[in-house]
């Protein structure tokens, strides 16, 4: 039970401070840096799923998260190509 609670609170900390980092962090004008910063709250969500024992949701979230990063990177590259 102790390790469950500590996993949960580590997830909370990563989620809140990761969100603050995405919103107010340094170099946030660059879309790539902002996209990479999103991985930290995503890891917090994964730890919270782990503490709640949501196995299927955790596995699907990991898979979907990598696909979302792929889509965003393509969008950013395309947009910079168009604006250049």
């Amino acid at each position: 039970m102790d390790i469950v609670i500590s996993t949960l609170y580590l997830g909370y900390i990563l989620l809140i401070f990761g969100t603050l980092g995405v919103i107010l962090g340094p170099e946030r004008r660059d879309p790539f840096v902002r996209l990479l910063n999103i991985e930290i709250p995503a890891l917090g969500v994964m730890l919270i799923f782990l503490a709640y024992n949501h196995t299927l949701a955790l596995m699907t979230y990991i898979a979907i998260n990598s696909l979302i990063v792929l889509v965003f990177i393509r969008t950013i590259i395309r947009k910079e190509e168009l604006e250049a």
């Binding site: 969100t19 995405v22 950013i76």
Partner: peptide, 12 residues
């Protein structure tokens, strides 16, 4: 594009 990226945090 920044709005779209921030929508991901709302989904979290």
């Amino acid at each position: 594009i920044h709005t779209l990226i921030l929508t991901d945090v709302v989904e979290c």
